[in-house]
């Protein structure tokens, strides 16, 4: 039995998120998983909110008030950030799979993440000032 302890197992999915001893590719992998989970969670949240429409205009108006609170806007920014990070990192995966920049995937990752940072900043400023 002890032999099995070091075996791969679906129950070890938490290892996916363990950044200890990892390098750029591993961080990209972790980021990709976390943003994917975040976006999936958001999708369900979104569906619930849309469900409010079925309860009539009053319920929806109440929700709109809530939606303008800074905390909510911050939440929206997180969704946007996750979308940008996941999308750009997805491009890294697609490109490397097609043989583009495989030996430079680290630079590709950092380059794309720099673009992501700028995009998130721009979105953040716009969302909090408009």
């Amino acid at each position: 039995m002890e032999k099995q302890r070091n075996h791969p197992s679906p129950l070890k999915f938490w290892l996916w998120f363990n950044p200890i001893g990892r390098q750029a590719g591993g961080w990209a992998y972790i980021l990709h998983r976390i943003t994917a989970l975040g976006l999936t969670f958001y999708l369900y949240l979104h569906l619930i909110v849309l469900g409010l429409l079925a309860k009539g205009p009053d319920g929806y108006d109440q929700f709109l008030v809530l939606a303008h609170s800074p905390l909510f806007v911050f939440g929206e920014l997180l969704v946007v950030a996750a979308g940008i990070l996941h999308g750009l990192n997805g491009m890294r995966i697609a490109l490397t799979t097609l043989g583009v920049s495989v030996t430079r995937q680290k630079q590709l990752f950092f380059g794309l993440m720099a673009i992501a940072a700028i995009a998130i900043l721009v979105f953040g400023i716009r969302m909090f000032t408009v």
Binding site: R22, Q23, A24, G25, G26, A28, Y29, H32, R92, I93, T96, T97, Q105, K106
Partner: peptide
């Protein structure tokens, strides 16, 4: 393979 590139690292 999910492109973590840890093998190469």
């Amino acid at each position: 393979c999910h492109s973590a590139f840890e093998c190469t690292a």
